[in-house]
C-alpha cells in the first residue's frame, strides 16, 4: 500500500512548473503572470488564438526567450543559464522543424544525438527512424523531404535523447489531412506506449481534443482556463449549427419559443444553438414542424465550442 502511494505521488509530481511568467516585447505584453504545472505522463494542450502567447511561453520554457518576471522549474530545479543541463529532460519542436537541409536525415539526427551527454548507438538511431516512420529514407537529403517527413524528423530529433517531456509547437502545421492523422497517432503512441509527457500547441482544436488530457487556455497573454479536459468541458453540451432556407418569420417563431433560450446566434441562413447533444433530434423535428427548411445540421466540436465561449470578447 505504501509503495502504491509512493508511485502515485511520483506520477503526479510536476515535471515542469511555470511560475508567474511575464514577457513584453516593447509595449506589447506577450505573456502576463502565467503559471501552470505539467504532470508526468499526461498530454497537455496549450490553446490560444494567434498572438495569445503560446510560442512565447514555450520558448521561455526552453530558455530561448528570457522572461521579464517569473521562473520555470524543471524537475523541481529552477531553469536558467547556469543549469542548462536540465534541458536534457526536454525535447522540442518550436514552430516548424527546421534542420540542415544540405544534410541527410541520418546526419541531422546524428548531429543532435551527439549534442547530448550520453552516447547514442546506431541501432537506437535506426529505432527512432522506424518509430517516426522514416525507415528507408534516412540517407536522403532533407531538402528532398516533404513537409510531413520534416515534421517526423523533427519529432525524431526531439526524441533522440529520450526526454521525459516533449514540447511540440504546432506540430501539424503544413501537413495534409493524412499527415495530420499520422502525426496525431504518433503523438498518442509516444504518450501511451512510451510514457512521454507532451505539451502541444495547435490551432486545430479538434486535434488537441483527440490527444490532450489537460489543457491550458491563453488569451492575450493570460491564462483564462486550465485543468483536466474532462473537468473543464461539459461533454454533453455542444454548439449546433443549423443551416436553413432563408424565410421571413423563421427567427421570430424560434425566439418566442422555449428553444429561444438556447439560441446563441442567428442569421437569415444559419442558427446556432447551445444544447445537450441528446435533444438535437427534438429540435430538428420542431423546426421542421414549424416549416423551417433545414439544409444541414452540424455539431461543433466540444473543445471548439468551449474555446470560443472562453475567448469571444
Amino acid at each position: 500500500m505504501f509503495i502504491l502511494h509512493c508511485l502515485n505521488f511520483r506520477n503526479l509530481h510536476p515535471i515542469v512548473e511555470v511560475k508567474n511568467l511575464s514577457k513584453s516585447f516593447g509595449s506589447f505584453q506577450a505573456v502576463c503572470d502565467l503559471s501552470f504545472a505539467i504532470e508526468q505522463g499526461q498530454v497537455y494542450g496549450l490553446l490560444g488564438q494567434n498572438g495569445a502567447g503560446k510560442s512565447t511561453t514555450m520558448r521561455m520554457m526552453l530558455g530561448l526567450i528570457f522572461p521579464d518576471k517569473g521562473s520555470v522549474h524543471i524537475k523541481g530545479k529552477e531553469f536558467n543559464s547556469n543549469n542548462i543541463q536540465l534541458l536534457q529532460h526536454i525535447g522540442a519542436i518550436i514552430e516548424k522543424p527546421d534542420m540542415y537541409l544540405y544534410l541527410s536525415g541520418w546526419e541531422n539526427l546524428k548531429i543532435f544525438a551527439a549534442l547530448g551527454k550520453n552516447k547514442i548507438s546506431k541501432a537506437r538511431l535506426s529505432e527512432i527512424f522506424e518509430q517516426v516512420g522514416l525507415s528507408g529514407r534516412e540517407k536522403d537529403i532533407v531538402k528532398a523531404y516533404s513537409q510531413g517527413m520534416k515534421q517526423r524528423l523533427g519529432i525524431a530529433i526531439a526524441m533522440v535523447h529520450d526526454p521525459e517531456l516533449l514540447i511540440l509547437d504546432e506540430p501539424t502545421n503544413g501537413l495534409d489531412p493524412q499527415g495530420i492523422a499520422e502525426m496525431r497517432a504518433l503523438i498518442i503512441s509516444l504518450s501511451k506506449e512510451h510514457g512521454k509527457t507532451v505539451l502541444i500547441s495547435s490551432h486545430l482544436l479538434y486535434e488537441i481534443e483527440q490527444m490532450a488530457t489537460h489543457m491550458v487556455v491563453l488569451h492575450k497573454g493570460k491564462k483564462i482556463a486550465g485543468g483536466r479536459v474532462d473537468e473543464l468541458m461539459h461533454p454533453d453540451e455542444t454548439l449546433v449549427d443549423i443551416i436553413i432556407e432563408p424565410r421571413v418569420g423563421n427567427l421570430i417563431s424560434i425566439e418566442s419559443s422555449s428553444w429561444g433560450q438556447r439560441l446563441v446566434s442567428a442569421s437569415e441562413r444559419a442558427l446556432t444553438f447551445k444544447l445537450n447533444r441528446e435533444i438535437v433530434p427534438e429540435l430538428v423535428k420542431w423546426l421542421a414542424d414549424e416549416g423551417v427548411g433545414i439544409l444541414e445540421v452540424r455539431s461543433k466540436h466540444s473543445l471548439e465550442a468551449y474555446f470560443l465561449s472562453l475567448t469571444n470578447d
Partner: peptide, 15 residues
C-alpha cells in the same frame, strides 16, 4: 535564418 538555431539552443549546451 535556417531556423536551426532554436533547435540547437534547446539542446543541453550553453550559449
Amino acid at each position: 535564418n535556417m531556423g536551426t538555431l532554436r533547435l540547437l539552443l534547446t539542446q543541453p549546451i550553453s550559449r
